[in-house]
Simulated assay, not measured.
Amino acid sequence: MTLSEKNTLDKFRAQVMPLLKDSYMKHDTYLIRWLRARNFDINSAEAMLRQNLKWRRENAIDSMRTEDWSDIASDFHVTIDTYDKTGRPIGVIDIYDWDIRRAVIQGKGARMLRYLTSRVENITGQVYERQEQLGMTVTQIVVMGSAAGFNVIQHACPGCLPLWIQFALMIENYYPEILDELIVIDAPPAIQIVLEAIKPFITRFQIVDVNSRLKLKMLNSSFAPI
């Protein structure tokens, strides 16, 4: 962090402190996310943070970690109990098991999105817990997944794509800077349909395709790999 960025962070903290009710929100590592997402424009960062807090209140985000997900968890399995050598939480998903089309047909699209949001909330919560309870300098997460069996009908149908877009927008708007890498193995050509749909909404990620190993790498404000 440069001296100029540190001064901007101090001003931002003083400006938004009355809004922050949770201890983790008062840490530099949390506050700087909003500044980086808005190129250190304090007013824009505050507007983004205010929108986030409003979204959290209106959607009862704080209660998600104790919500009963037994009706949908087995259909969209996510494992979030693994860490890399630096201590970053790793989310592991098996996309091929996700029948998004069936969820849409059954009218469970919104429920699916809320469940996946709860998984994001859980793994990001682990970042803050590791900072506060263990004194670790963990600031981001990694998500890994297998796309073996990914197909257009089940995963990229016309009713499926809006859900992918909504999820991408949610990450971009409400969890800025938290995802360092999304690594997908066994990625078939059909997955490009989803990537093209969400690309306009993940402007700070670089898509790298190495054979069948798909990698989305977080970019900094200058659109260079971090």
Rank of each mutant, 00 (worst) to 15 (best):
L9A: 00
T124H: 01
A73H: 11
C160W: 14
D10N: 13
K215H: 15
D28F: 13
G107E: 06
L214G: 03
Q51Y: 12
V194F: 07
M144I: 14
Q166I: 04
R56A: 09
R36L: 02
F76Q: 08
D62C: 15
A224F: 15
I165G: 09
M64Y: 09
D75K: 12
F150T: 04
Y83C: 03
T137W: 14
L31H: 03
R130T: 00
M170D: 07
T79P: 03
D10E: 13
K85A: 06
T66I: 12
L9V: 01
N211Y: 12
N39I: 06
R130D: 00
G159V: 11
A156L: 02
T203M: 08
L20V: 09
Q166N: 06
E129T: 01
I105L: 11
K6N: 13
K21W: 09
D186H: 08
K199R: 15
P188F: 04
I72R: 03
L35W: 00
R102Y: 10
Y83R: 00
G91T: 02
A45K: 00
K108W: 03
M17E: 10
K54T: 12
H77M: 12
D41A: 09
T117S: 11
V208Q: 10
K11V: 05
Y115I: 01
Q15Y: 14
G159M: 11
T117C: 08
D186F: 03
Y24C: 02
Q166T: 06
G125N: 01
L219I: 10
G159L: 10
L116D: 03
D71I: 07
D10I: 09
M136I: 01
P18V: 02
P18Q: 05
M112K: 05
R38F: 00
L195N: 08
R101P: 05
G149Y: 01
D97E: 12
A190L: 09
V92D: 06
I198R: 01
P162H: 07
Q15V: 11
L113H: 06
I80A: 07
I93H: 04
E132Y: 04
Y115H: 04
I183G: 01
K215P: 11
E172C: 00
Q154K: 15
S222C: 15
E46T: 06
H155Y: 09
D180Q: 07
K26R: 10
H27M: 14
A37G: 07
E58Y: 15
D41G: 04
S221D: 15
I90V: 10
R65P: 01
R102T: 10
N220G: 04
E181L: 11
R56S: 05
V16T: 08
L219N: 05
Q166H: 07
R111V: 04
L20T: 10
Y83A: 01
I198D: 02
M136E: 02
M17C: 07
E172A: 04
L113P: 05
M48S: 08
N39W: 06
T29C: 12
P18R: 08
D71C: 07
Y175S: 06
T29L: 13
K199Y: 12
I123Q: 00
R204Y: 10
N122Q: 08
K108Y: 03
I123D: 03
N220T: 03
Q192S: 14
A190G: 12
